[in-house]
Design a protein around this nucleic acid. Structure first.
Lengths: 114, 114
DNA sequence: ATTACATACCTAAGATTCCGATGTATTGTT
DNA sequence: AACAATACATCGGAATCTTAGGTATGTAAT
């Protein structure tokens, strides 16, 4: 669902961060939230999302609980303790990377500006 | 040379932008410049750089000229006209992506802040 | 009635992109 | 003599995403 090939590597961080803020979310909800927040500019494809969720679960970052909602099955994901630690790690990794990117691409750039 | 798996997708932009600022650079020089600018935090691996350069050349974004410097062969790359257009395109793509990322990851964020 | 869209899950093949290892060759340092 | 730095390159493998498909329910439009 995304025209952008830049998400690579940051999808996990996005998932973890959204779950930090929302306690529990299901897959489809995540795709919609991202679409909302970016006004349709970033669309998480299902082919990327579900494997990523399964991987994070296998790594012990997430737990799931399945719930029936109006004849529809929903699989809710939430952070484990390890997952909560991982959010901070992944976030500072990403912020530092974005900072470095600015230093490369924008010689005028100083921390404090976009 | 990189501990970061987040470069994915932005390496081309980095190459193009550096060449916009420097007119002509050779491969090794690019790795060193990036290392300098990020204080060693981002290291472009040769296994990533050279294929990327060759691809950009094949796509007509870059031209090369080989030069002998103190018994060492250097392959200088510079932007073609298409390459110059591509820099702007790739840059605004990346900036917009970073903006969207901030909107997802930092609900407090407003354009104008990191 | 059928099509289409939204909700909700999933997988599999293929492409892309990067990393790590390895190779060649020269020069300078220890 | 061995190692680090400069400078190019390729190849196998890993990781990650896209495209396309599949299943299933409910609702709105034609």
């Amino acid at each position: 669902m995304s025209n952008n090939n830049l998400i690579k590597g940051s999808l996990q961080t996005i998932i973890l961060k959204l779950l930090e803020e929302n306690e529990r979310m299901y897959g489809y909800e995540i795709t919609q939230r991202v679409k909302e927040l970016t006004e349709g500019e970033i669309k998480i494809t299902e082919g990327a999302l579900y494997p990523a969720l399964h991987k994070l679960e296998a790594e012990g970052m997430l737990t799931t609980e399945i719930q029936q909602v109006e004849n529809r099955v929903r699989k809710y994901y939430s952070l484990t303790q390890d997952g909560q630690k991982e959010v901070s790690a992944k976030m500072s990794e990403l912020q530092s990377f974005v900072g470095n990117l600015q230093r490369i691409l924008d010689p005028e750039w100083k921390p404090g500006l976009v």
